[in-house]
Design a protein around this nucleic acid. Structure first.
Lengths: 349, 349
DNA sequence: CTGTTAGCGCTTTCAA
DNA sequence: TTGAAAGCGCTAACAG
């Protein structure tokens, strides 16, 4: 027996036929016992139950999936797990799925929309019943694929303004809008933005837009020389902030918003390295309210986003759809500004 | 059409038969084209390829799995995703699996060994080919189940000292041993330990043991009144540390080790809240060297554990076994003490 | 190199 | 309430 065949089911792996034989019934009855016990006589049930337990019978999922066109697997397709955020959302999803008898298949696309399509196709091939995606921006080919295979899905971390795709999230634009208002209220006039690349990332796009909108409303404009884009990574964020600190004094922002906490904490590291005081010299704010930000000194002002709620609601929606239960196709959840020590009035001139 | 049937494959979902018809060949040839193209004539290949692309054919995974007894899915069964650590390991795994044409099914057992068995059985039912587990401590029923279904697996975050189960990890005991030596070297005599519950958690057990061993070697003993156990959670860790700080002065530890960075950072929060200075009044050290610890003020002394390497190696090992390739069943990886500002000499008496 | 054929293990009509 | 029988879509023998 070679390694390659080692995983083949043991010769003795019990099948429904074995259970049927032992219980003295037909395989049809075994199947009914498993799937709709109400249709089986109580005595017969006892017979079958004993046989199942005795043989430690575990039904063959692939056969069931083939026959019933239902794998009971839900795909979670996320940008990346390195940012703790999606891990927590996924964890919440997984808990709900598990409770409802579904398993979760996980895939990352590393912020590449094209690879998202490829990955999704692979999961369809594996028989995944339904999908949860992150964000509203996706390759049109993705929706075509889902449509052509009749797979339900839900988008998360935002709500589709056109109501074309089922979605669960919050208003990313409003979140940074409110944060910017907070900083404007403290008296800031010169702002900096640390953002993820916006291509194919509506969260980053919207968060930037919210900031610009709030500034515009206050009669200000975001100086593009104070904007940096880069990967969601502490090192990159630190470098981005350092380059802002290197700007001529008249240009240098007194308030910097990161489109998420990683950027904001990276900015804090840069300030510490350069001897720039927070919040006396510069205010820093993030988004998503992670432990990473909340435990900094000073603690990071951030937006509490519905990380766990999104995961739970997404899982519940796809399961409800698979099971034919009523559900809300669109859910707009709330967020909350959490003001902490990293933001204060700007330095006096 | 009800919601429940909405996910049924569209009537027109192409099958191998459709591809065969369009290409003017048999389904066997389609199958060969997909699985071993070398056996198919170049011209025929072109015919089939065109048909596949034209119909946007995606093979039916369940049928393939049923027939070939191979689902190309690997199960990752982890304690929890809330601790960012396992998310990163899983991410590394997923990248390798994806590159090798496998998908990853994810499940969490929330530190309950019994639910780990249940979850694993569910994944076997779904047809998962192989498994990666976290830690060496598991319910014997788990191994019995894997054995009876002939599923390869690998344990991670430790190496089985008995060499009974394939495993990839590092020496958890040596890690805290070294950390404790570091603190002893700084002059500490009274130690505190913040740990996860040790039941069914060999990482926590070993990390505690390493500390005790180092102390014993130095002729000291860990005062059990300075030990706290609790969930891996910042709030819980903070409370645990507060209760250590509430000890009579003569008993209060001057050095506290967390069995991971979450405990250590929670301890830092407690110190800040109580006005206890780090490292002047108390030294604090963690384990796993996460961003959470590294970005604190002062930065947390910790142990860099092979988080990503474990994930990659585990994925490579299970794939190698499934594919019948040579592989190392046991891999002992290294770790490294990273000394930062949170540890220093104890206060003078 | 290609087609024919026989199932993989299960669910689901249809009859009894 | 139960059994017999027909496949789900694919792969692997076996012929040709």
């Amino acid at each position: 027996m070679t390694r390659a065949t080692a995983i083949a089911d043991k010769p003795g792996r019990p099948s429904a036929k074995d259970v049927a034989r032992l219980a003295g019934v037909s395989t049809a009855t075994v199947s009914r016992f498993l799937n709709s016990p109400a249709q089986v006589d109580a005595e017969t049930q006892a017979l079958v139950r004993d046989a199942v337990l005795k043989l430690r019978y575990v039904p063959h999922g692939a056969a069931r999936a083939l026959r019933s066109a239902r794998s009971h697997m839900v795909g979670a397709v996320v940008p990346s797990f390195d940012y703790a955020l999606y891990a927590r959302t996924t964890s919440a999803m997984q808990a709900v799925l598990d409770a409802r008898g579904y398993s979760m298949v996980l895939a990352e696309h590393h912020y590449e929309l094209a690879s998202e399509v490829r990955i999704t196709e692979q999961l369809i091939r594996r028989g995944v019943d339904a999908f949860v995606f992150v964000g509203l921006d996706h390759d049109p080919a993705l929706f075509a694929l889902l449509e052509s295979y009749g797979r339900p899905y839900v988008l998360t971390w935002g709500v589709d303004p056109m109501r074309r795709h089922p979605s669960i999230g919050f208003d990313n634009r409003a979140a940074t809008f409110e944060m910017t208002r907070h900083l404007l209220g403290l008296g800031h006039q010169r702002f900096g933005l640390l953002s993820a690349p916006t291509a194919g990332n509506d969260r980053a796009t919207e968060r930037g837009a919210g900031m610009r909108a709030a500034l515009a409303q206050a009669g200000l404009a975001l100086d593009e020389r104070c904007v940096r884009h880069g990967p969601i990574d502490l090192g990159a964020a630190t470098a981005m902030m350092k380059s802002l600190l290197a700007l001529p004094k008249a240009l240098r922002p007194t308030a910097v918003i990161g489109t998420n906490d990683v950027f904001a904490v990276g900015a804090m590291l840069a300030c510490r390295a350069e001897g720039v005081r927070i919040p006396e010299d510069v205010s820093i704010a993030g988004c998503d309210n992670t432990d990473l930000g909340a435990t900094q000194t000073p603690a990071l002002t951030s937006i509490r986003t519905p990380i766990v709620e999104i995961g739970r609601a997404a899982a519940e929606q796809v399961v409800a759809r698979l099971e034919g239960e009523p559900h809300l196709a669109f859910q707009l959840l709330g967020f909350e500004l959490v003001s902490r020590g990293s933001t204060a009035a700007p330095p006096r001139r």
